[in-house]
Amino acid sequence: MDNLTHSLIGAALAQCGLKRRTGLAMPAMILAANLPDIDAPCAIYGVESLSMRRGITHGPIALLALPLLLAGALITFDRWQARRGKRPEGRLPVHPGWLIALCYLGTFTHPLFDWFNNYGIRLLEPFSSRWFHGDTLFIIDIWILIMLGTALWRSVKAERAGRASWAVPARLACAGVAAYVAANIAISHLAEQQVRNDAPYPVVAVANPVPIAFWQREVLWRTADGWYGSMRCTALSCVRYPRVMRRIGMDDPRIPGLAAKDPAARAFLFWSRMPVAEAGPKGILLKDQRFMNSPARGTFSVLLKPSR
């Protein structure tokens, strides 16, 4: 998910009452919820970063080590402020056990919500480079942002007014997000099943979440004999598009040799879940079916140029 969503998830959990357990709980939860994205600077490598993102920093070793490092840094910061006489008077005492626990909780929410979208995450790196895809939420889900943002505003307002029920809005929002995610899992599953059970009876069907219209899916399908297409579906029905069938094209014998010489192509094929190849006068364009209609589709494509 986007980092605003990750931040709101951490903040909402803290606002549920967890921030009263220890000093620095709120910044710990927000920072921890974004912590695995320390790999984000690799985006400067362009297409090659596809093989770098959501890997080692999202895997088990990092998920065990990073929360401890964050907690240690926050404890050190708190003590440094105390020595300088600049520790805020209103800050609760920092309890290392609680702070570590909250850092782990915030950090674990990150791979969970990254898994919910269709970009992919290598949850077992470095032990396995397998990609996992939840196909549940669009990468920026406006409804989650509204639920969490509104709840945080109401909760903080109630807290400042001295109301005993100040944590209730955040708790209701967290429960609402959980129910919303569960409903979206069901929508994706039912949409995929409809497409698999209809002609041309594809062997692969991926429910691609779409922005805003959470009840709909762009179900991408592939047949065993090399054709692909898509349908717009809800949990109950699908609409077949005109000219639905196109050749996947990945059986072009030139692709392995050309890709072996191109680092960007190797990175793309390592990451790509649904690669498509289109031969043209300039070369062979590799694309991923999941992002062919995305405004950022240029980021998810590589042009293989034949050697002269």
Rank of each mutant, 00 (worst) to 15 (best):
D252S: 10
L68V: 14
Y228F: 07
P169F: 05
Q194D: 02
P27R: 04
P126G: 03
I185M: 14
G149L: 09
T5M: 12
M274S: 12
A277T: 11
P263A: 10
A158T: 01
I30F: 07
P41H: 07
S165Q: 15
A175Y: 06
G249Q: 13
A175I: 09
A235L: 06
P211M: 04
R79N: 15
Y104R: 02
A179M: 06
A183G: 05
C238R: 11
R163A: 12
P275Q: 12
W227I: 07
T57E: 02
V168Y: 02
P93Q: 03
S128A: 13
I140R: 07
P209H: 05
M26T: 15
H110E: 01
F270N: 15
A151L: 02
M231F: 02
V203Q: 11
V219Q: 07
R240V: 14
I75P: 01
G298H: 14
A264T: 06
F270V: 01
H6G: 00
R247P: 09
I56E: 09
A267M: 10
R196H: 09
G298R: 14
A170L: 07
R154Y: 13
P67R: 11
H95I: 10
Q81K: 15
R308P: 15
N208M: 14
L303H: 03
E125S: 15
S188G: 15
S188K: 02
F113Y: 08
